[in-house]
Design a binder for these strands. Structure first.
Lengths: 299, 299
DNA sequence: TAAAAATACTCCATAGGTATTTTAT
DNA sequence: ATAAAATACCTATGGAGTATTTTTA
């Protein structure tokens, strides 16, 4: 195995993930035959097949599985090499791929982007908005550099930096504005609207209401906080949203916002990245800026 | 840094070690301009210089130093990838690069090679004979797969497998054959001939005689056990050699061999390899064979 | 027969070679 | 003046594209 190339390893990795020559080739921006040839040469060089070709799907052989683990480590390490150069010339510059969960992105990003444009024009910010488990995966794979999520996560290999925390607010139809804010127990008797499965914010809200696992709940699911508030506005029920969402989301619906009595439900917003990411120095700087932007959000 | 290649990393590594474009290029089997170009592209891609070009030597920059550490790890990991394939199809085959120290090689290798030829013709054995520190270095760098040395070493990251141990024998001029074998203390009054600095066997012999560090010694240094025995044969002094060397070395010189009283000086012969070497399964097999061959040496 | 991988061929980008120039002591 | 690295230029290998065939459920 003297003429092993990084390209081959990248192609192998793509194929191992997609299990399909055509799609993997597309991801690699090459043609399917080009990928076939490289994979074949890889297997020939090794003297062992890496994939089992079925007519419907391509699967890693047992040996291929082992191999893939090491290959992924190597590719991560190689990608880090590039980042080291940028880390060396400190100061924020170059591409920075930031993941943000959907219950933070719309409220924090406008201010963050404006701030970065003003203070660090050299920084080429790419934003990816998706839910926490996906972000973790992409971080591990080196597809993004850092993520803004709700803490704690306790993922091994990741550094967590808590930035600020904020209360969760009750949103009710405007008609109920003079009613007292219910207790967590009282919430169970209302029709509580929540985000669909997968959003960590859903779980945070649920845990405040102390619904047991699997307990049936008289509510509906929405795909965004915006949707939920609109639903509340039309009298369907009530919902919880983080404080940072209040100014944006309650402007255009006939709803009122209430604050719970102590102990308030809260969530912690923070940043995470791989502990070994060479850009961690830069990422700390970004975290400071996110904190600043977060603190300056309208209440 | 999208078009980084393994070749570039290998060239970089070679240049970082040799500090000289011409010699590094030779090691890589390419021309000096080819190397210059690749290094230049590497630095351009990174946006940072990796080397300081002086008129007399090329040195790594501070950043280059950091980079080199990671690059070496990556290259080792990549080389391991190739070995994994061979490890998978177990059974001894393919190239196996074995280091052996000079005080073992001439006595053990003939039998070992004969045995392997007979039982594992598929195995392509490459032998490297040099002293322990060098072997350790080459193991770490992946230039050899395993080494046969005197244990213990306690090198972190290496697996040590003790195989057998053997006594150190006293070699005197044949004329002294009827004299009693001296004690360790008695040895100090004789002219003791030892291997030159660097051979671990020298230290083993010295420690038996309990010469303090730096104590002056009335002896001479030789470059091989063979030389030492010849010198003893011509009446210059006495020496110690490992038991396995006795049949070969005392055949052609007028010397006699004596065994010390308990506690005898002994050395342990064993094999070492990197703990993470994918071939370790194979290496254990080789160790078993070395043990067998070692045990069957004539006494 | 249809979906997907492998093969055939053609082409061009680029790694590498030789000859030469530049650089710094 | 000399040793060593950089540049110029040319060549050839091999990676990638398009068109096509083979494979198997």
């Amino acid at each position: 195995m003297k003429n092993l190339t990084l390209k081959q390893l990248r192609y192998f990795e793509a194929l191992s993930r997609h299990g399909h020559f055509g799609r993997a080739a597309e991801v690699c921006s090459i043609s399917q035959p080009a990928l076939s040839v490289q994979i074949k040469e890889l297997e020939q060089g090794l003297g062992t097949p890496l994939f089992e070709r079925g007519p419907r799907h391509v699967r890693l052989t047992a040996f291929g599985e082992d191999w893939a683990l090491r290959v992924r480590e190597i590719l991560r390490a190689v990608d880090d090499l590039g980042d080291m150069a940028r880390a060396a010339q400190d100061g924020l510059s170059g591409r920075l791929r930031l993941g943000v969960i959907p219950t933070i992105a719309p409220y924090l990003l406008p201010g963050l982007i404006a701030h970065l444009d003003r203070t660090h024009a050299e920084l080429d910010l790419h934003v990816r908005e998706t839910m926490t488990p996906r972000l973790i995966e992409e971080l591990a794979r080196g597809q993004i550099d850092a993520a803004i999520v709700a803490l704690p996560l306790n993922e091994p290999g990741f550094e967590e930096v808590p930035l600020f925390d904020e209360p969760l607010m009750l949103v009710r139809p405007e008609t109920e504005k003079d009613r007292p804010v219910p207790t967590p127990e009282g919430l169970r008797d209302l029709r509580l609207l929540l985000l669909e499965e997968g959003h960590c914010f859903r779980d945070q809200a649920l845990s405040f209401c102390q619904f047991g696992a699997g307990a049936t709940r008289d509510g509906l699911d929405g795909t965004s906080l915006s949707t939920l508030v609109q639903m509340v506005g039309s009298g369907i029920g009530v919902t919880l949203i983080p404080q940072m969402a209040v100014p944006v989301e309650t402007r255009s619906a006939p709803v009122c916002v209430g604050q719970f009595a102590e102990p308030q439900p809260r969530r912690t917003v923070g940043m995470i990245w791989r502990k070994t990411n060479p850009l961690r120095g830069q990422l700390r700087q970004v975290a400071d800026i996110v904190l600043e932007v977060g603190r300056s959000l309208p209440r």
